[in-house]
Structures are given as structure tokens and as C-alpha cells.
Design a protein around this nucleic acid. Structure first.
Length: 498
RNA sequence: GCACUCGUAGCUCAGUUGGCAGAGCAGCUGACUCUUAAUCAGCGGGUCUAGGGUUCGAAUCCCUACGGGUGUACCA
């Protein structure tokens, strides 16, 4: 740490020197006439008429050479070289220039020109410090070889990149793209849904009861009310209340919180799109999902084909729709359609699938699917008609009391969405939740709770409804070709450092 | 949770069989009035993640802890 102290001390000394010279290292005012990109876009014209410009940005390279010096300044738009000459800026300003460190924010008043070596630059008339950097940033250098940018000493430590995201963004500008694309994707989701008449709503993050998904919640406490509250694990039960209230098409994009393990597909807080539509069912939700994902792909990337992990994935309609039972049979030859518990248990035992005490045949079918099928679903696939046992909010499939109208969307072996024809029969819904409570009593910590207020709402009447949930982070991962959710969340959850 | 793996200067990394902790960049001093991974000369900078053990001697071998990654389990 001695070294760090020295590096910090040096910068503070420079700060002191500037102050002694009467220079404010953190002025309140600055001026900019051009973004750097504008300079690049108008190079010929600006060079010809020696365009006067004032640029601002961070000094990220410096090559001083006696009484002349070069630097590079970056703003959000781009990066350009500056040329600072003693004879032009004068003795005092040149002293200031010499006291600059990499990472300082500066303003350069000057004019556009081309150096002897042919590089388009800003010839400084004055260099003004806008914000002193008191801590050294790692230096990443770049060199263009055969038109390709080669980077040296890249800031690449994954842990540091996540913990100090600002450095990652600053030093690895290509990583900013993930987050720009994330914003665009979410914007296109809204554009798409808004144009189809869905109303965006906001429902409570702090809930007295949690529901709508299988997950353990985060618990918090409200002082004045003197009650525990839960951070939502889903917004489902609130959005359905809105359908009772007469809204016909609603959606919410927001953070949900699940108190579970973390890995490259799971962050404790994550962004979920949930959508409910009256007078619709899960088939409509499949159509909608296809249209929405294709809209995103085409409007942002101009194509309905994407590459992920060297696999070409076609988003063109229609996506495969196959039942979970058919897929299992396809992969394993095992026919579970009779829901014969003993037979299914035997199959699980033979294949070393854990049989939890609370699991029935439906749960085991889901386990078999995970074990044998999931990873095989590379191209977009709607896996449909799930066991009723594992779907307490989904409506039974006509003609088969073991199944419900539900689908999960899989792409490249990962789950992206979950949807069903929603239960609007309050009696059925109560029975399903009561069955969940029994599981809970048997030790299933993720089983659903009974939300009496929600059941009461259903009793007033809810229209037949299709509901959909899409994992937004995963969608962003897909479109940005990332295999870790931490790459698409600006500040992913990390263990505290020792 | 379990398994494997990594942790050395601000950053990127090397470190042989267990034998004086290194390089480049960044920093500091000096030279240089058109450089661009600027160059040249010199200098400073380390609790080798932490703690314990083996050993004459540990960055290196062993154990434990912490942190990261990967896989697996869990997770709609």
C-alpha cells in the first residue's frame, strides 16, 4: 500500500501546486462548443477553415516532449489528439499543462489542424483543468496494426471490472456497448408493447405477502407499520388484480428479488417483464413473444438471425412448440404421459435424479425434462403443457387434469420466459394454493403462500387471461452474446471484500 | 452447498528443482518545440490475499480462512 500512498501523494502535491498558482482544479464553470465526434465528422471542413473549437473530456494519454506536447482527450462521443505548444499557450498555461495527470478532466480551446505526421488534432490556445484526478487509473494503450486495434495492458481482471465498474466502462469502452444495447432492448420492448396498446404500470416492490413464483424472498421491516415486508419475487398477483379492475392489457418491467444462489444466470435482483392480457390465453402469449423478440432483433440489429456461442440462432417465425412430455419421450424414449408415479419414480432412480419427499409425478417430470431436454433446446422452443402439480397459477388443459396450459421459452438451453393461461376460477385457484400450503408444511420453502386478498379479487371476477414473464437480463445476454449475467448488470451483486 | 482452479508492484504479467522477489506500462527526476504503445538516461515502488505448518531456507510444498472464476447442485 506504500506505493499507492506515494502515487496519491504525488497527485495531491500537483493539486497543491495548481492552487498555489491560482488555478482552480475544480472550477464551477466550463464550456464546450463541439463534441469530439463532431470534429471527426467534419474533418476536412474544420481543417480548411481552421475551425475554432472548445472541447472537453478526460486526458487519457500524454506524450510530452520538451516545450511541446501531445495528449489525447476523450469525451463520451470519441477521442482526439491535442497539440500543446509552449510558444502558443504561453509559459503559465504550459506549466499547468505539465502538471496534468492522466485521468484529469480538461477543456481545450483551440483550432482544428493536421500535424506534420498527418494526425488530425486540436491545436491548443489554452488548456483549462476542469477536474483533477487524484487517483491513478490503469493505463491501457492501443496501437493500430493493419487496421486492427491492438490493446496493451488491458484492464481485464474480472473481479475488478465488476467491483469497479466505472473503471471497466472507462478503460474498456467496448463493454459500454452491452449497457447501451440493454437500454435499447428495454426501450424497444416498451415501444412494441405500447404500440399494441399495453399499459405500463408499477406495482409494489414491498409486499406484505409474496407470490407469483417459486422462490425464497428477501425480508425487510417497516418501522411505522411494525410489520415484515417482502421484496417481491414476482408481480403476477398485482397485475392480475388490475385485470379484475378493468385494465385489459398491462405490463411491468422491473426488478424482482429472489433470495437464492448466484451463478452466471442468476443475480439476486434481476429485471423481469410481466404482461397480462384479458381475453387471451397461452397461445396468444406465444405469438406475442415471437413478435416481440423479432421486433427487438429487427429494430436494433436489423436481422432475425443471431449468433450465440458460435451457434446460429434463427428467430424467424414460427418457433417450435412441443409439449414437455413429447420432448422427454423424444430424448429418452420414456413415456410419462400416464403420470404413473411408481413408473416415473423408477425412471428417476435409474437415472440418478433426486426425488424430494414433496415431489409428485409432475415435479419429477419437470426434473426429467431439466436433466435430459433443456440443454438440447438450442433454437427457440416453446415447451408447452406443463404438469399441473408444478403450476399453481395456470389453468388446466381441457381434457387432461394432469396438465396445464403453460409454456416456457428456451433458447440455447436457457430459459427465457414462462407463461400461462391464467386461472380465473377463484375456487380452483384457492384449491391450488391450499395444495401449495400443504407442500410448505411438508418443508418446501418455496411453495406459494395463500394470498386471501388476491383470492378475494378473483371472486369479483377476472376475465380469461394470458400472462407472460420474460427475463430481461437473459434476453440482453442473448443479444449481446454474453454468457454471464454479470456482464449485463452494471453493478452485479458481489461478496464484500474481506 | 460440493469439486476444480486462480490470487505476486497502481495495471498487465513472469518467477525454473524450495535458494537474494522480477519485467513492461503507470509514477518521479532529467533531456528533447510535431509525438502517437513517443524516445533516451536515471530513481522510487512489494505484508507475494490472510493466518498457521513442514523446512537450515517457502511466492513456490501442506492445512485453514477470505475473495474471484469454472463446473455441478439448488434456483420457474
Amino acid at each position: 500500500m506504500e506505493n499507492v500512498k506515494q502515487l496519491l501523494a504525488v497527485r495531491r502535491q500537483k493539486l497543491q501546486k495548481l492552487i498555489e498558482m491560482g488555478v482552480d482544479p475544480f472550477p464551477n464553470k466550463c464550456k464546450r462548443t463541439h463534441k469530439i465526434k463532431t470534429l471527426l465528422d467534419n474533418q476536412k471542413e474544420y481543417v480548411n477553415k481552421q475551425q475554432k473549437v472548445i472541447i472537453t473530456g478526460r486526458l487519457d494519454a500524454m506524450r510530452r516532449q520538451g516545450k511541446v506536447g501531445f495528449g489525447n482527450v476523450s469525451d463520451e462521443s470519441s477521442r482526439i489528439q491535442i497539440f500543446v505548444k509552449y510558444d502558443i499557450v504561453g509559459e503559465v498555461n504550459y506549466e499547468v499543462f505539465k502538471l496534468l495527470d492522466l485521468g484529469d478532466f480538461i477543456q481545450v480551446d483551440g483550432e482544428c489542424f493536421v500535424t506534420k505526421m498527418g494526425e488530425y488534432s486540436v491545436k491548443a490556445k489554452q488548456v483549462t483543468i476542469l477536474g483533477k484526478s487524484l487517483r491513478p487509473l490503469p493505463t491501457v494503450k492501443e496501437k493500430v496494426v493493419d487496421g486492427k486495434v491492438q490493446r496493451y495492458d488491458e484492464f481485464s481482471d474480472i473481479e475488478l471490472r465488476y467491483r469497479k465498474r466505472y473503471m471497466d466502462l472507462l478503460l474498456n469502452p467496448q463493454n459500454k456497448m452491452n449497457f447501451e444495447l440493454r437500454a435499447k432492448i428495454i426501450r424497444e420492448i416498451r415501444t412494441f408493447l405500447d404500440s399494441r396498446g399495453y399499459l405500463e404500470v408499477e406495482t409494489p416492490v414491498l409486499q406484505p405477502l409474496y407470490g407469483g413464483a417459486f422462490a425464497r424472498p428477501f425480508i425487510t421491516y417497516h418501522n411505522t407499520l411494525d410489520i415484515d415486508l417482502y421484496l417481491r419475487i414476482a408481480v403476477e398477483l398485482y397485475l392480475k388484480r388490475l385485470l379484475v379492475g378493468g385494465f385489459e392489457k398491462v405490463y411491468e418491467i422491473g426488478k424482482n428479488f429472489r433470495n437464492e444462489g448466484m451463478d452466471r444466470n442468476h443475480n439476486p435482483e434481476f429485471t423481469l417483464l410481466e404482461l397480462y392480457q384479458a381475453y387471451a390465453n397461452y397461445n396468444d402469449m406465444m405469438d406475442l413473444t415471437e413478435d416481440m423478440v423479432i421486433h427487438i432483433a429487427k429494430s436494433i440489429f436489423g436481422t432475425d438471425t443471431i449468433n450465440f456461442q458460435d451457434q446460429e440462432i434463427s428467430l424467424a417465425k414460427p418457433w417450435r412448440r412441443a409439449s414437455i412430455l413429447d420432448l422427454i419421450e423424444e430424448e429418452t424414449g420414456f413415456d410419462a404421459s400416464d403420470f404413473d408415479f411408481e413408473k416415473i419414480k423408477a425412471f428417476c432412480k435409474k437415472n440418478e435424479i433426486t426425488i424430494y419427499p414433496t415431489a409428485g409425478p409432475g415435479k419429477l417430470i419437470e426434473e426429467i425434462f431439466k436433466e435430459f431436454v433443456e440443454a438440447k433446446l438450442i433454437q427457440p422452443t416453446f415447451v408447452i403443457d406443463f404438469p399441473k402439480e408444478v403450476s399453481p397459477l395456470a389453468k388446466e388443459k381441457p381434457g387432461n387434469p394432469n396438465l396445464v396450459e403453460r409454456f416456457e421459452l428456451f433458447i440455447y438451453g436457457n430459459e427465457y420466459g414462462n407463461a400461462f393461461t391464467e386461472i380465473n376460477d377463484p375456487i380452483d385457484q384457492r384449491e391450488r394454493l391450499e395444495a401449495q400450503m400443504k407442500l410448505r408444511e411438508l418443508g418446501d420453502t418455496e411453495a406459494n403462500l395463500i394470498d386471501e386478498d388476491f383470492l378475494e379479487a378473483l371472486e369479483y371476477g377476472m376475465p380469461p387471461t394470458g400472462g407472460l414473464g420474460i427475463g430481461v437480463d437473459r434476453l440482453v445476454m442473448l443479444f449481446t452474446e454474453n454468457t454471464s449475467i454479470k456482464e449485463v448488470i452494471l453493478f452485479p451483486q458481489m461478496k464484500p471484500e474481506a
